[in-house]
């Protein structure tokens, strides 16, 4: 089992629920580390259903968005599914402005997102 510093991973049924350790995801070194940990879930752990729960995340830079997009590509190439949930309104606006709400399946809360994997 990989050791994670930027994320906390738990299982709800078949879904791997990822929570973020940082309230503000903006420091480039941390984002780099975050990306490696997220990619490892797909490439090393072979997890197919991944939910990113943004509860508690207050800030997200465009560099972090880039990691999420790369993660989405990796999940798709491994024939898995990725969903996002519990995104606060200001960050949701970032997804809407950049139209990434069309790329990601974004759900209101964890329960709704878990149900959507079924």
């Amino acid at each position: 089992m990989a050791t994670h510093r930027r994320i906390d991973v738990s299982k709800v049924g078949d879904v791997s629920v990822v929570k973020f350790q940082d309230r503000k995801i903006l420091d480039e070194a941390s984002i780099q580390e975050l990306g490696l940990e997220l990619f490892g879930l797909v490439e090393h752990d072979n997890r197919k259903s991944i939910l990113l729960n943004f509860k508690g995340v207050e800030f997200l830079s465009s560099a972090a968005l880039g990691k999420l997009i790369t993660l989405d590509r990796k999940v798709k190439s491994h024939k898995g599914r990725l969903k996002l949930c519990a995104i606060r309104p200001e960050i949701l606006e970032v997804f809407q402005i950049t139209k990434l709400n069309k790329v990601f399946d974004i759900r209101t809360d964890e329960a709704e997102a878990i149900a959507a994997f079924a």
Binding site: S62, G66, K67, I69, D72, R73, I97, T98, L100, V103
Partner: peptide, 22 residues
């Protein structure tokens, strides 16, 4: 334009658009 269909899934290039929008 980072929101163009062919660039939507590019990892970078969103900073300037976010600055303009906010």
């Amino acid at each position: 334009d980072c929101t163009a269909d062919d660039r939507l899934e590019m990892p970078g290039g969103r900073g300037v658009m976010l600055m303009k929008s906010f």
